[in-house]
């Protein structure tokens, strides 16, 4: 508890000057800040304070969750020098890359065209969103039956019927990440499509009409009317997709447990292992902070790049 008190007094000294400044700012736009308040409170309790605790924990030694002595960067060093850390980081990047390929472009295409189809559109939308509404246990069972590497696996039966060689699927260290990402894209695509479709309702149809009169074909219309309308959202959704792909853990845990031989292990699984299997909250926190730093740097670069490309247009 000692170090917490230290933080407490420290912050009081630091914040005394800024405190009045903040009060001033809030006073000026009291209506806006009042409307922000509920959300800010929710974030304080369920996000910001826990994150600060996590960061503090990562510099201490813990027994269970009790903070012990200050160890500086020891947890970080111990985590980074772990024999499998590099493999895990490389895997995590691989997940992100494949998520980008499977998870970013297809929803855009599906949304743009699905928005145009009038026949059975209610069904079609529900269909794309369907995997989201099926509980995870059923999905997990589905993939075990599909990906079973024996000849009785559903996909292997399909391959066999088509005259192809059967595959080892998730047992194959070279394919495992792609396959896991594919299953996630399959499951997650619906929600992205729904968001894009909602966004597409904002396109002014007069613009399409004008473009048609000018003789623009469908793909030209997509390029000059649809995509510019969506671009802001697309940029954000892509970033969110990539951030989420860095945090993958549910699927690999249930599908492969990180195997074969660490081939599908991710950083978040490492956190899960440290915290829940080995009861090392300090090391789990250190990995969490490292992952956050990685994502932070990545996001800043992403935004910088997007800003400059916007200016260039």
């Amino acid at each position: 508890m000692k170090q917490e008190i230290a933080v407490n007094t420290n912050s009081k000294i630091k914040s005394s000057g800024i405190c009045s400044k903040i009060i001033k700012t809030v006073k000026k736009d009291w209506a806006g800040w009042l409307m922000l308040a509920p959300c800010v409170l929710a974030f304080l309790i369920f996000s910001w304070q826990p994150i600060v605790t996590t960061i503090i924990t990562s510099f201490y030694e813990t027994t269970g969750f009790e903070v012990g002595k200050f160890v500086g960067l020891d947890n970080y060093i111990s985590v980074v020098t772990d024999s499998h850390f590099i493999t895990t980081v490389v895997n995590t990047f691989e997940y992100a890359l494949w998520s980008f390929i499977f998870g970013c472009i297809p929803p855009i295409i599906i949304a743009v065209f699905l928005n145009e189809i009038t026949f059975m559109k209610g069904y079609l939308r529900a269909a794309v969103y369907m995997p989201n509404m099926i509980p995870g246990v059923a999905i997990a069972l589905m993939w075990t039956i599909m990906f079973d590497p024996s000849e009785g696996g559903l996909l292997n039966m399909l391959l066999g019927a088509l005259g192809f060689e059967t595959s080892m699927w998730l047992n194959d260290p070279d394919k495992v990440i792609e396959l896991i990402v594919l299953t996630m894209a399959w499951r997650g695509i619906g929600s992205t499509v729904i968001i894009y479709i909602a966004n597409l309702q904002g396109v002014n149809h007069d613009l399409y009409e004008a473009a048609t009169l000018d003789g623009a074909g469908i793909f030209k219309r997509i390029r000059h009317v649809t995509l510019p309308h969506m671009s802001g959202l697309i940029k954000v959704m892509m970033l969110l997709n990539i951030i989420n792909s860095f945090k993958i853990y549910d699927e690999p845990i249930s599908m492969t447990g990180g195997g074969p031989s660490y081939a599908s292990q991710t950083l978040t699984m490492l956190i899960q292992d440290y915290a829940f299997t080995y009861f090392r909250a300090d090391k789990a926190a250190a990995v969490g902070v490292l992952l956050a730093l990685l994502l932070g740097v990545f996001s800043i670069v992403y935004f910088k790049y997007n800003m400059s490309s916007e200016e260039g247009e």
């Binding site: 700012t25 922000l36 974030f43 853990y249 992952l291 956050a292």
Partner: peptide
């Protein structure tokens, strides 16, 4: 409305996405 300081709040909100849920 963009009151002064709301941008900081927005970035602090975005930043929470970087930390995986399990650690907190």
């Amino acid at each position: 409305m963009k009151p002064k300081g709301s941008k900081v709040i927005f970035w602090m909100i975005i930043a929470t996405m970087m930390i995986p849920g399990q650690v907190k």
